[in-house]
Design a protein around this nucleic acid. Sequence first.
DNA 1: AATTATATACGAAGGACTTCGTAAAAGCAA
DNA 2: TTGCTTTTACGAAGTCCTTCGTATATAATT
Lengths: 131, 131
Amino acid sequence: MNYNIPKPTESELEILQVLWEYGPSSVRFVNDKLNEEREVGYTTTLKLMQIMAEKGLALRDTQSRTHIYQAAVSEADTQKRLLQKFVDTTFRGSAMKLVMQALGAHQASPEELDEIKALIEKMESDSEDEK
Amino acid sequence: MNYNIPKPTESELEILQVLWEYGPSSVRFVNDKLNEEREVGYTTTLKLMQIMAEKGLALRDTQSRTHIYQAAVSEADTQKRLLQKFVDTTFRGSAMKLVMQALGAHQASPEELDEIKALIEKMESDSEDEK
DNA sequence: AATTATATACGAAGGACTTCGTAAAAGCAA
DNA sequence: TTGCTTTTACGAAGTCCTTCGTATATAATT
């Protein structure tokens, strides 16, 4: 486990998502990806990535002149952490309320719904086993 | 619908949750509730609630010396807005990934699971109807 | 009436985050 | 070599949010 690593800010999360999707990348590459979504200055991205390296959110390889950064935290772990906090603050700890909202607000495909049903049934049978 | 109302910050959300739960309240009351969780100065809460009134997140009745504030945004709407944003930034728009994570990370009671299953089945039959 | 308690108003400090300008270094091209 | 491009480094400004000190007004208490 890692952690004294702080939770990423929103901007840092955007950068992490590029690193998660494309693997180790230069600042230039990340900045280009971000600019597909919205305008960001190069030095802004650079600064953020430097800070992320300091915080331990990213690792950087300074071998070549163009430094290469990679995520130092996993996507699943990060999502889990942020979800925990979000459930606490916005749904006062009720994950189920959140699930109901999420299911209601976004239409899911039949396949996705089946996937979820399968997961629920697995959970129910698991809790049977505990008896 | 409302909205040019900004999304509440975390502190504002804490206050809104008191207002949602207990209805129109004085600063004193809200501050006492907050202090059951963590230490907050009275003028801090006052200032936040004044700002919330400015922003349109709360309404205040200044009839009596002790002003009475009430939420100007509904809990469900606010949760929906925040959830939308959270899904976008943290799960890149995939509400289903979030649902799976939430179901996985927090153990739910059998009753809750049944509730969710019922919702899913309702959604499935609804999408049948569309054909 | 004088004191004490409670309320609002205001401003400003401090911190976290984002943004960007500028400089210095390193590589590339003419 | 000289100049152009790319990169890192650094610092500082600006914003948003939170917190709190202080002043002022109103009410309650003695």
